[in-house]
């Protein structure tokens, strides 16, 4: 038999401070997982940038051979194709009074800026680190780290207006994809040695290291080419696609990027994980803790 029970509960109009919500699900798991994932990567990449060692292994690539001559590896190392951590690619050799500077800091600003201004990552870190909002229909703090919130919220209109420079970081990121694929080619270019150990030529081979670099670079390429700015520039900015070769091409490219764009978040996380793992793998090989053997004898 149906019955009516009258009880009192807080009015819903009071739902206005951090974490107050009518939601009964585990809404906090998303921002916590994001904070752990992004925070962990930031800590690891910063540590590795300061570490400034064990970031490559094997014979230096042909392109870099002259620059690398001063520290050309010998013995066991010289018989391996060149493996280079993506954190330190392209190779930058600083001499003289700048020798103490980690080249990673001259490199990581570019992919870091690309991810910082990325439309997906903006959602991720605004939610996870700035709690703005932490989750949908969940109350926000009235202040954070001394900054007042509420009616003082400015969004991306003032301090954060720099986010609009995302497309410039994207241009640099595309150039990095080319460089990283060159690293994959170098990692498959193994030296051929004569009986005395001298290099007489090069041949194709592959190893777990080159496979890791290939997967990493491909995921980075998928993340980069699913970018919202590319989607706009390649065809999204048009309202009409004329029945011309150019119009057809731009529509087709826009359609392809749109398909990739639906998985932008997936590519963002996979590529972030793999780029960290690739650096870790090269670190382990370069420090002698793991042997990277070629697949084909």
């Amino acid at each position: 038999m149906a019955q009516a029970d009258v009880s009192t509960a807080p009015s819903q109009r009071s739902l206005d401070s951090l974490g107050q919500t009518g939601r009964t699900d585990a809404w906090w798991t998303g921002p916590i997982a994001t904070a752990l994932g992004l925070g962990g990567f930031i800590i690891y990449s910063t540590f590795r940038a300061f570490y400034n060692a064990d970031y490559d292994f094997g014979e230096a690539s042909q392109l870099l051979h002259v620059l690398e001559q001063a520290r050309q590896p010998t013995g066991e190392i010289s018989r391996h194709a060149h493996l280079l951590s993506p954190f330190y690619s392209p190779t930058i050799i600083l001499g003289g009074s700048l020798a103490w500077v980690s080249p990673a800091f001259l490199i990581l600003w570019a992919p870091g800026g690309f991810r910082l201004t990325c439309y997906y990552y903006r959602k991720a870190y605004y939610r996870a680190f700035f709690l703005d909002p932490a989750a949908c229909a969940v109350g926000e703090p009235s202040g954070l780290c001394g900054f007042k919130r509420g009616r003082n919220y400015q969004g991306e209109t003032r301090l954060l207006v720099f986010q609009n420079l995302h497309r410039y970081f994207m241009y640099v990121a595309v150039a990095f994809i080319v460089l990283l694929y060159l690293d994959v080619i170098y990692s498959c270019t193994w030296p051929v040695l004569d009986d005395s150990g001298a290099v007489t030529g090069h041949e194709f081979n592959a190893s777990l290291g080159s496979l890791v670099l290939f997967v990493t670079t491909t995921l980075l390429a998928l993340y980069t080419f699913s970018c919202h700015s590319i989607r706009h520039l390649i065809g999204g900015r048009l309202n009409c696609y004329p029945e011309t070769a150019t119009g057809n091409l731009r529509y087709r490219l826009w359609s392809i990027v749109s398909i990739l764009n639906k998985r932008h978040m997936l590519f963002a996380w996979l590529s972030l994980f793999m780029v960290g793992f690739a650096d870790f793998y090269v670190w382990m090989v370069a420090s002698g803790r793991f042997t990277d053997s070629p697949f084909f004898s």
Binding site: K123, Y126, R127, C136, G155, E156
Partner: peptide, 15 residues
């Protein structure tokens, strides 16, 4: 219309 106030946290899409 202040589109800059949107910080693209996508709750609108989810809802």
């Amino acid at each position: 219309f202040g589109i800059g106030y949107c910080n693209i946290t996508k709750c609108c899409t989810e809802a």
